[in-house]
């Protein structure tokens, strides 16, 4: 059990014309807690996860696991990642038992009998029949594969688990079962967890804290219920309002024509506040707010509530608390 800390981490791809997928992100996953990370596609949330496990190049900053830089840790780290697509994250030519065995720390289980027993234990842990260890992934459903992927991640005896959109490829009825499993495992094993999803409702269900990412930056982070009921950043508000719900109308909190703007191009991020071309309280609506175009709101974010990267945070302006999941108007 240890904490995962991103310390001003940047991930940059390509040369001069490359793009900065993650830009100076600082985020802490406290020991034994679940931090949910939301954001739209291209916001850099998956890249951040990949950077933590060494699949994406960290060009600046450090990733610390229990206070130690992960780059200095041995190859088999107590930090594991579960991938989005259960159809490509398991080797189609390896039985699920072999896949799980492969991820076990060397020497942890003496002899093949010991390893078999551990595979059986892990499969039972994720509610799969241990007798199916010899099955190839091709014979399993999406939900079952995602369980196997979880079991493989747990085989590495992680202190910290990163789950990257693990339910977005699954049907609603299967999603619930996987989320229940993740939650019970997290509690039982006291894992620290970074749970990434584009779905705010999913993140809310599991997380103690919520961080919101936009164009490679974290724009708001705080305790889950607070972020949802009293969002500081306009982007968080927009995400909340846009979450589809059976009991809210499409036209709640209409943003007018601003809603129809193009998403920003990560190759050419806007100056100042990256959200300003879409922001309903930004310079497009309030002409005098030139500070949004010129000044980066990341400066001084630490002083604001929820570390909001906004010059005009909600609490400064309109202290109207937003009912949970409700309308922003």
């Amino acid at each position: 059990m240890s904490e995962l800390m991103f310390d001003a981490v940047s991930v940059r791809y390509g040369g001069r014309r490359g793009l900065t997928a993650v830009d100076q992100v600082s985020l802490t996953v406290p020991a034994g807690q679940v931090v949910g990370l939301v954001g739209e596609s291209g916001s850099g949330k998956s890249t951040l996860a990949r950077a933590a496990v060494g699949l994406a190049p960290v060009s600046a900053g450090r990733v610390l696991l229990g206070g130690a830089d992960v780059r200095g840790l041995p190859r088999r780290r107590p930090l594991q990642l579960v991938f989005q697509d259960p159809y490509s994250s398991l080797d189609p030519r390896m039985s699920i038992g072999e896949s799980i065995t492969e991820a076990m720390p060397r020497g942890a289980h003496r002899g093949s009998a010991g390893r078999r027993a551990e595979v059986a234990r892990l499969l039972e842990l994720v509610n799969l029949d241990p007798d199916r260890a010899a099955t190839l992934p091709g014979h399993l459903s999406g939900g079952q594969r995602q369980r196997v992927a979880l079991a493989r991640a747990l085989a590495g005896r992680p202190d910290v688990l990163i789950a990257d959109e693990i339910t977005s490829a699954l049907d609603v009825s299967v999603q619930g079962a996987v989320l229940n499993l993740v939650r019970s495992l997290q509690r039982r094993l006291n894992l620290s967890m970074l749970f990434i999803s584009h779905n705010l409702a999913v993140v809310r269900y599991l997380s103690d804290q919520i961080a919101v990412m936009y164009l490679g930056r974290i724009v708001e982070v705080g305790p889950a219920e607070q972020v949802l009921t009293d969002p500081q950043h306009r982007y968080t508000r927009e995400l909340l309002a846009a979450a589809p719900s059976a009991h809210s109308s499409l036209f709640d909190g209409d943003l007018g024509d601003l809603a129809d703007t193009e998403p920003a191009d990560p190759h050419h991020p806007p100056s100042g506040c990256r959200y300003h071309p879409r922001c309903p309280i930004g310079p497009l609506v309030h002409v005098d707010r030139t500070v949004c175009v010129s000044e980066d709101p990341a400066e001084g974010a630490a002083r604001r509530r929820h570390r909001a990267a906004c010059h005009f945070t909600a609490s400064d302006l309109a202290p109207t608390a937003i009912p949970r999941g409700g309308s922003a108007s």
């Binding site: 699949l55 088999r76 990642l81 994250s89 991820a103 720390p105 991640a153 590495g156």
Partner: peptide, 17 residues
């Protein structure tokens, strides 16, 4: 380029294996 290779890397599987 596929995820299962990434997954094996994350699990700490060596280059040769």
């Amino acid at each position: 380029g596929r995820d299962f290779v990434s997954a094996a890397k994350v699990a700490g599987v060596g280059r040769i294996r």
